[in-house]
Nucleic acid binder design. Sequence first.
RNA 1: GCGCCCGUAGCUCAGCUGGAUAGAGCGUUUGGCUACGAACCAAAAGGUCGGGAGUUCGAAUCUCUUCGGGCGUACCA
Length: 583
Amino acid sequence: MLRDYFLNKVETALQKAISENKMGQMTEYNNGMLIVEKPKNSDFGDFAINVSSLARFAKIAPPQIANEIINHIDKQDCQYNAVGGFINFKAGNDLLINLVYEIFNKKENFGKGENINKEKIILEYISANPTGPFHIGHGRWAAMGSALANLLKFYGHEVYQEFYINDAGSQIQKLGNSLKIRVRQELGENVDFPTDETERKNYYPGDYLIPVAKSFVEKYSQILCCAQNDSVDVVDSIDLQTYCDFAKEYEQKVQRELLDKLRVHFDNFYSELTLHNSGKVSACVEELKKSGKIYEKEGAVWFKSSDYGDDQDRVIKKADGSNTYLTADIAYHADKLNRGFDRMINIWGADHHGYVARVKASLEALGYDPDKLEILLGQLVNLVIDGNEVRMGKRKNMVTLDDLVDEVGVDATRFWMEMRNIDTTLDFDIELAKKSTDENPVFYVQYAHARACSIIRHATGQNIDAKTGEQIKGVMSVSEFNDFIANFDKNIMNLTINEARKLILKLEEFKYLIYTSARDRQVYTICRYVQDLASEFHSFYNSTRVITDDSELTKSRLALVWAFKTVLATALNILGVSAPEKM
RNA sequence: GCGCCCGUAGCUCAGCUGGAUAGAGCGUUUGGCUACGAACCAAAAGGUCGGGAGUUCGAAUCUCUUCGGGCGUACCA
């Protein structure tokens, strides 16, 4: 990376200056003391290092340190200058040309991590109850999670994506009972959900179970056919479990179809129920007992999680003998490690933050390293309609994720869900996301890609003149262009390097972006990058004509256009947003 | 009460391992299409970085405190 190149130059020079006793009282330099940054003002240079931090070791004024270091740098064709305590660096043309060459060599692999410490990661996200359609909040985890998986894979890790299905527990009974009411309605009975607030909480009164009921009645028509006249209640003649299973299966199918549409692909859907049935949960409780951190109180079994930093102890087994949700979760996380993963990354909504301490505590008690579990807590999503926030909790105002995708499309949904730091509450403005104008960053970025493709089409004679309807004559054939890309000669870049500096530097930044984003588990940074990159391209396009009468000059600029669209497409691919050739 | 997240331009947000005049997009204003996509570009205006105190040569960034907003604080999942 260019910043490493620069840092290395400065560090080498500094070592040299120290060995020549030019650094005052400073006798040694340790890596990490200097940090490369981007100058606030790009007129200063491409990168900068602030050497002020060395002043307290050297007992020399920062400007003097900077000057001394510069004197010892092997500058080659790059520019170095000192302003105050800053050493500013401007890359020389050869470096930039080599960078373009690197993109041509690596193509869609440009930016991948090199010599990385590869980890086998299990990434768990969404993990919704199979009791209803996804709401908008789930969309944030879906988009972010899959983009993070793409990012970590691209960087070089091995990533296994898993969805934990909460298909055990009381909410499933709730679901079955709710379906039963919908089935009765379907059969013409005059029944409805309780109106009493507390009783109503035992049901899912949303409309979404109506089609499920229709489908259920169809499937069990033989049993349900004579509902009206029979004294025996046919609805009750089918056991609750059948209703539960039917609704559960149905909702899972609905969820998975939407995930496909959103380009979210899991390697595995892990059922909580199978975890219980396999005996892993009870085995885990036994294992916990061995830690000595288990005790009984008021008829329940407690885990002394407060010994590991949790604010209070937690119930593992209720007085009625059943396990809590936490117990299954402990077993689940232990199981992940037993399956051989080096690292577990979970994306959880901020409403689950209280869970972090107890799950980590349990891992520690079981003898695992709790640091292997990384939990990314995401703040929730607010829907904005006509400038007003719509609270997500209220059922009547619930907008499902499916509705949203239909409304704004997959690309816009994904991009808007990914573009904000996970720590901030996301305001999702439907009207804005729908707009196909410059208010919408998705289109801005995609437009740049389409434009670049169009230029290449134009150059290779594939565009049609809108007025005459005839094919526009290109400057080279498609096969000549492909040949040019395949056998790229970097020397040609000399012709256009001066106009392209900023664009090339932005392309170079992609490597560092991938490195930092993967390290910090962030994807919003990629959204920002893609906008910056598109902006540099548009700017380049407006100031520099690509297709000219000079065929060599044209080629050198076309090479840059190709490099740009390749890197942009790679970045969009990580985000799971399409890179259209036309729009 | 306690815990976590947030408070930066009219709006939505970057910047937070302390460092050069606090940045971007949108919105507003002004310019730019008889050549490759104007869904674009160039430029301008716009800020007590919620308030206060502290640490430091230097604080949007670290510490404390205070005020706002969100979330959580179950033998529910």
